[in-house]
């Protein structure tokens, strides 16, 4: 993996002539985690898809650039809430999906190493239906890591998991994605308080930065400052709804 660049999204978006979000600037610091919070339908997923170079319903006017001047979309790895595992392929085949889809040979050692790191060694030949929700997200995480992209976009990646599994996955993701530029879309203030080096609350008017705790990530689920930040974010979100 090359040095992770910072990413800047600057612009506005419309859907069918109506405003989706006003001109905004979202800065992803290189090698850091940025959390994007906000109500349903404000355009969080849209921003993420724009960065990934995917089609959106919205018309975007503006610029998406990398701090090193290089291209953005080809250096982006993407993980959605739906784990998008192929039900007919084994765990190992799902993790090696990228090379398989490019027609490249799979690097066996790297694959085995990744499976070990996400704790799926014994499940390599299983089909996704035989896995728990947490295990499926581990496969999706390993598949993302197999791509070895410096920029990682996570769209509500752990929202379907139970609270304990979610916390475990957050720890694992922070460990495995160290050094990469990460953008997490979440609707969980607790997740943002644990994971964000920078936390942004999004509304149709733009972004509001909320200062997260100083502690290194992943922050303790029961740490006083994490809980305080979570409460702060909660107040923000409720003020928006009012």
């Amino acid at each position: 993996m090359s040095q992770a660049p910072g990413i800047t999204v600057k612009g506005r978006a419309e859907i069918g002539g109506a405003r989706l979000f006003a001109p905004l600037t979202l800065e992803l610091a290189p090698g850091a985690w940025t959390c994007l919070l906000g109500g349903s339908g404000v355009g969080k997923s849209t921003i993420l898809r724009l960065v990934a170079g995917l089609e959106t319903e919205a018309a975007f006017t503006g610029d998406i650039s990398a701090s090193d001047g290089g291209p953005v979309a080809p250096r982006v790895g993407y993980m959605a809430q739906d784990d998008l595992l192929l039900p007919w392929a084994s765990v190992a085949q799902n993790i090696a999906l990228g090379p398989r889809l490019r027609g490249d040979p799979t690097e066996r050692d790297r694959l085995a190493g990744l499976m070990a790191r996400v704790g799926l060694n014994e499940h390599a030949q299983k089909r996704p239906y035989a896995l728990s929700g947490g295990q499926r997200q581990r496969v999706a995480l390993a598949r993302t890591l197999m791509e070895d992209k410096p920029v990682i976009l996570l769209d509500e990646p752990f929202s379907a998991l139970d609270a304990r599994t979610r916390a475990e996955m957050q720890d694992l993701a922070v460990e495995l994605l160290a050094g990469r530029t990460v953008l997490v879309v979440t609707h969980d203030p607790g997740e943002a308080a644990r994971l964000g080096h920078s936390v942004q609350v999004m509304t149709p008017e733009g972004l509001t930065e909320v200062t997260p705790p100083k502690a290194a990530i992943p922050r303790g689920v029961d740490a006083q400052e994490t809980l305080a930040c979570q409460a702060d974010l909660m107040r923000h979100l409720m003020a928006l709804a009012a």
Binding site: L54, G77, Y78, D82, L86, L97, G98, L101, R102
Partner: peptide, 27 residues
């Protein structure tokens, strides 16, 4: 569409997407 999005972010080749995703999904 999620599969196709994923394939796109992986710089997949159309032929591989056909045989490894679209055909199995259409079985």
């Amino acid at each position: 569409p999620g599969y196709l999005d994923l394939a796109r972010t992986m710089q997949a080749r159309p032929g591989q997407v056909l045989w490894r995703i679209r055909v199995p999904a259409a079985l």
